[in-house]
Design a protein around this nucleic acid. Structure first.
Lengths: 224, 224
DNA sequence: TAGGGTATTAACAATTTAGTAATCATGAAT
DNA sequence: ATTCATGATTACTAAATTGTTAATACCCTA
């Protein structure tokens, strides 16, 4: 997260000030721009990881900037978010068309802003699902489709393995049954109510310990 | 989103018709009023989740209605939006002073209207629900469905957790029993009078300290 | 200090939700 | 063709959650 570059473009110096101050406080490098043209220019020279664009700006508005940047391959992977007025649904719709990743509503709460920014980075830095996961006594090795409990190999079936990996991808976090269904079974497939439970049971059985906690009425979570 | 009650007030039967038809199509329950007085009366008896007010109405105009409703605690959490002529800047400014949450411009596009309404509910239905809340000794982690008291995990049941999160979302603010019912149980469900109390009790018990204060005849509030 | 309204509480009942074991269907491996 | 593992379903059981009741307790006000 540290050292990530963020470009902020807004024509109001105050906003610019507040945003960059708070982001810098959290270890981000901030580049600022005060209009659309400058935003494009600075984006090209600094290649930021995240770009925050105000919708309304002189020279070129946020939408235009976004459109232009998105058309260039070096910004394909860059996160672009808009600053919008609260509930400005129209901008949201258009913004998504132009390739925005998300929106931050004005008025801005620094706290919310920073946590949103953090979550953007968390989101993209995730696709490392093939990483070996070490969680206490449990070790998950995706490329072997294998799980080890205290060094002992435990062989899980595909669905079981995927389910465990998914839950273990964020220990402590509760995954809703719906999320699980979507991720493991896909949104088209419809499976019975008890299917998840049965697979959870198998995992618990095979691992011998209960590393999966039930949150009734909500879902399941992994805990080391 | 389903079953949310929306009160629409406008003196033009056609507009009323279009709006309510489209909203109903999307699963909302619509109540209509054709003037300001009726709007107030119906608002009081049906306690809608969202109120759409035309600015220009007989008896009382939208501003007045808004002002009156806002002055009553049971409408503190209700979303109120105005129907305004496009670019009617003056109404916008005044409207915000009177406590409006947003504006919808005439002429009305049903599509835009519905998507705006949806977004209102999306906003309020989870106002930063994924934010960790730190309140003195108490820490609420929505992602984990967990509450920590002085670092010690306390596991609350779903309803209890939701209730606590709700109250804690605005420490110090009193939540009316009605608001709580609407938010936690939904406007359709009918539960007995003592139900809230019992859940409050459970939370108090489990947390060990009394962070929830009773305001007799009114409701409850969270205090760190 | 008596009484109305309101909240607290504990015990209980109802409901919802998850766990379990047995069973079936499918398809790959022997 | 038979076996076997997987994955899904079912019907049943178990358990936790959630809601109700009814017996107080509390606190204003008269």
């Amino acid at each position: 997260m540290e050292g990530k570059k963020i470009l902020v473009a807004d024509d109001e110096p105050d906003i610019l000030e507040i945003i960059s101050y708070n982001l810098q406080l959290h270890g981000y490098k901030v580049i600022t721009a005060k209009d659309g043209d400058q935003a494009i220019q600075k984006a090209k020279e600094s290649l930021p990881d995240l770009i925050i664009l105000d919708i309304m700006m002189p020279k070129k508005n946020g939408m235009e900037v976004c459109k232009i940047l998105r058309s260039q391959p070096e910004f394909a992977g860059t996160i672009i978010v808009f600053l919008t007025a609260l509930n400005d649904e129209l901008s949201h719709v258009k913004g998504l068309e132009y390739g925005a990743d998300d929106f931050i509503s004005k008025p801005i709460s620094p706290k919310v802003m920073v946590s949103k920014v953090n979550s953007f980075f968390r989101r993209i830095s995730k696709p490392e699902l093939n990483q070996v996961m070490d969680l206490g006594d449990i070790r998950i090795v995706p490329e072997e489709y294998m799980v080890y409990f205290k060094g002992e190999p435990v062989s899980l079936a595909k669905k079981e393995f995927e389910l465990l990996s998914y839950l273990a991808s964020k220990p402590g976090r509760v995954f809703l049954r719906n999320e699980i269904l979507n991720r493991i079974w896909g949104s088209e497939v419809i499976v019975g109510d008890r299917t998840i439970d049965v697979h959870i049971r198998k995992i618990r059985q095979k691992l011998g310990i209960d590393c999966i906690t039930t949150v009734k009425g909500v879902g399941y979570k992994f805990e080391a």
